[in-house]
Design a protein around this nucleic acid. Structure first.
Lengths: 214, 214, 214, 214
DNA sequence: TGCTAATCGAGACGGTACGTCAAGTCTTAAG
DNA sequence: CTTAAGACTTGACGTACCGTCTCGATTAGCA
């Protein structure tokens, strides 16, 4: 999607593909370690074992560099069909729990939201490159569930994805001692009554006391 | 909560209280205009008509300065009782719609989330100083509703606040042409079935076709 | 003298002679416009319509390039015999006046002396390539004059050339409103008493008040 | 004359005078070692033990820095009266011989002439700050000689200074195995016939074979 | 005619230094 | 002891050229 590495077709020494890899890898590493603000181009150059100019030749700015670095993280196909909404969600939650332990993921979310309101297009790129693919995975997951009859037929999936996304994001971000996955599950319990045909939670072991937990 | 203005009691020239005001005002203005990254202490000093030293004596770092500047925005008492959950929420949504048009609000959210994973305590401060007061307002609002019988008695309010907060935040942040308030309302419609005693939306004019909108 | 254009004898595509010309011409042009310091190889390449490699293949460094560029300016045979020392000198002074108006000449002198004390051999090359040929012309001119009896027989021509060269150089370089030629002539007036057989100026129209001018 | 160290009168931390000294000293050292071209501001900063910005605060450009550095070399009072033109000149020649052994002197001359034709005012500054004071010393020396009757009364001193200056400069610059002082003396021998009342060299031990040396 | 070998253009590469900006600290005189 | 003013160190910025290097495409002369 973002391909800052593009260049004119003919003539000249070809770009070192190893440099591309090294740069983006270094950028991701430093982003995970220090966060967007304290990531420096010179630091990336040093870690990648590359001259600063080699970076600037590919990425005109820090924003574009980080964008491209993150862009590669886009997962190919999340959420394989496990047979039921409940198990699909369980799989997702386990993966999310795992993924959010990676400091890089938090940094990316930080960089993503830190760019709100900036005019540099970083936020849009992030949204398209990072959020949208994950929404697409949810879309697939929920479409399957709808086909199975686990979700109401008249459910507006986009709005529902917004809702689930909000729950996940908020729980990912909010300080808490409990694991994210568990909190997300608790949060979604409120919703099933409105979205499932029978108003029941799809989770077999759903805590019956879900309304009273703290 | 944050009171960087504290100082030793006696002797010498007293601090200029006007300086405090001017500094924080300038900081807020520049934060709204440029965002956290591009806000500079020197810029704040110039706009406040104050020497850099005067800022550093009060706030040891940029983080603390911005924290204090945002801290003053804490609203005294949001969400007055309008008599019903529906009208309380309508009032909130109208205010939110209004508030999110202010670029400063978006910058603050950006700064808030941009500090996730940083070790400088900025995020915690933000959460305590900015998010928690709003959660408290919701808590008050929903407690009233519960007392009125508009929400189920056994509802865990903290989890419910998480849910509502997630919806609001996600919609505030996601790119869309529709107004935030309307999207938040649509999002909450999914939830009422699970949280209200009769499973009905508290909104009188609730769109019956809420499940089919795009 | 300097022939950086030399190459191995056989095989392969022959060098483009047009490139040699274009490079040296561009170098001279840029030297005249910007001076040695601000002349860049990339600038020469661009103006010559030639790749940087093509320059480096011929001239291993900026010094050698500029040297070669200047080298071509060596005049074939200055100072034709006009019949007398006075008219020979008048012809020389007129030519010098003309030549020193060319900014390139001043840049070359600047580059020449700017390289004093450098260990890159630039100064020696300049001296041999630029100064020596001019000294040779003087030598010829003064030898003729000596033969004609216009200069003392026992005059050490090398020392005399040093003297005249010093006068010319100093006047060429020193800030003044009067034309160089006139100042050089005035300067040489002091000398005739010591070098001519009759102690008189060779110039017919020599100002008798030469000792009092300002 | 050049006083880049000037600043507004009141308020703020005063400039560190030690820094001024260290910077100019470092600049002179590096100028002597490497010459103008290869002198870098970063090198000066490092040797002076000072931050780059501290240099740029004082001197907006390399030219101004070097100018100021050289400016301090202006000698207070050259050429004390030794009683006669011959001994005055001997003293000068000895000093010149000494001075021109200092690589810094050659570098300065190189920088001086290297700046000819540049539009940065460097040359003018050099001329005023470096050449003019030395011309003034000559003026004084020759005025004394004229008063003593060692030079003709009607001699135009400015033109004579030009002449002597030219001889000195040319001999200082030209490649040769013989010492500068000796060559300058030989060169001036040509001149005495035209400028002394009796046409004789002021030097007691003047080589009678001065016209035949090589 | 096809092979060989150097040239050409284009431009990437690791570097060095540039001149600027801001951060956060320090120093002074004035209040 | 605070304040305004501003110098100071530090570190990164993004740019310009350096001189070297790798390409693919020419362009001879030799086989």
């Amino acid at each position: 999607m973002v391909d800052a590495t593009q260049r004119r077709s003919s003539g000249g020494r070809p770009r070192d593909p190893g440099a591309d890899v090294a740069i983006l890898e270094a950028a991701r590493g430093l982003l995970g370690e220090f966060g967007y603000d304290r990531l420096t181009i010179e630091g990336v150059a040093e870690r990648a074992g590359v001259a600063k100019t080699t970076i600037y030749r590919r990425f005109p700015s820090k924003v574009e560099l980080v964008t491209a670095a993150i862009d590669e993280l886009r997962p190919p196909g999340l959420f394989p069909d496990t047979g039921s909404l409940a198990s699909d969600l369980d799989a997702f939650l386990a993966a999310a729990e795992q993924g959010l332990r990676d400091p890089l993921a938090m940094r990316i979310i930080a960089a993503l939201f830190g760019s709100i309101g900036q005019d540099d297009g970083l936020f849009d790129t992030y949204w398209r490159g990072y959020v949208e693919p994950r929404r697409a995975s949810f879309r697939e997951l929920f479409t399957r569930a709808q086909a199975r009859g686990e979700l109401r037929d008249d459910l507006d999936l986009e709005q529902f994805i917004d809702l689930v996304g909000g729950v996940v994001m908020y729980q990912a971000v909010r300080p808490s001692d409990r694991p994210v996955a568990s909190r997300v599950r608790d949060g979604l319990e409120f919703v099933w009554a409105g979205v499932t045909p029978d108003g029941r939670s799809p989770f077999a072991d759903a805590t019956s006391d879900r309304m009273t937990r703290t």
